[in-house]
Amino acid sequence: MSGFKILFANLYDLLLLIAIWFVAAIPFVLWQGQEFTDKPGVTFAFQIYLIAITYVYLTFFWIQSGQTPGLRTWKLQLVTENNTLLSRYSANLRFIFTILFFLIGWVGLFLPKQQLLQDRFAKTKIIAVKNQ
């Protein structure tokens, strides 16, 4: 399987997440006003809010089918090392590692196993799906 497919699937999901963040920001901005960025505590709360939305989006798909819309488009699936769907614990672990390795997790795609660093630590893998 090509590391580029994994990269493009994640970019596809990022585009969807940006749209979701945009819509999710509307009530927050209406509630706090446009100057909410001038208040450090409110800015921090907004960042936590966006991370929570990201958590719900990703873990929902990981647990339900192992396929986010991006993974489904590229015919990929996220599974455990035993080829089973992720449990809530596995999804939480992978999400934490995804946050921790956000900037360097991609390095794993260029190693022989072509596996994201967060997948190595969370004991998960992305596999190709033949039929959907």
Score class of each variant (00 low, 15 high):
Lys130Phe: 11
Leu85Thr: 06
Pro27Phe: 01
Gln47His: 08
Ser90His: 12
Trp21Lys: 09
Arg72Ser: 13
Glu35Gly: 14
Tyr12Met: 09
Gly105Arg: 00
Gln32Gly: 01
Gly41Ile: 01
Ala52Gln: 03
Tyr89Lys: 11
Ile99Met: 13
Arg88Glu: 07
Ile126Tyr: 06
Glu35Tyr: 10
Phe60Met: 08
Gly70Gln: 03
Leu58Pro: 00
Pro112Leu: 08
Leu100Trp: 06
Thr68Ala: 05
Gly108Met: 01
Phe101Trp: 08
Asp38Glu: 14
Val129Pro: 12
Gln118Trp: 07
Thr98His: 11
Ser2Asn: 15
Ile18Lys: 07
Val107Ile: 15
Met1Asn: 12
Glu35Pro: 05
Thr59Cys: 14
Trp31Gln: 11
Pro40Lys: 01
Val79Glu: 02
Val79Gln: 05
Trp106Gly: 11
Gly41Val: 02
Gln64Gly: 00
Ile26Gly: 09
Leu76Gly: 01
Phe8His: 05
Thr54Gly: 11
Thr80Met: 03
Gly108Trp: 00
Thr84Lys: 14
Lys75Tyr: 04
Thr37Gly: 10
Arg88Asn: 09
Phe44Ile: 09
Thr37Arg: 10
Ile20Phe: 11
Leu7Thr: 13
Thr80Asn: 07
Asp13Asn: 04
Ile127His: 08
Ile126Gln: 07
Gly105Ala: 09
Phe8Tyr: 13
Glu81Thr: 13
Thr54Ser: 15
Gln77Met: 05
Leu93Met: 12
Leu58Cys: 07
Tyr49His: 09
Leu93Ser: 11
Val56Cys: 08
Ser90Ala: 14
Glu81Val: 12
Gln47Trp: 05
Leu15Ala: 15
Phe28Ala: 10
Leu17Ile: 13
Tyr49Asp: 02
Tyr12Pro: 05
Gly70Glu: 01
Asp119Thr: 06
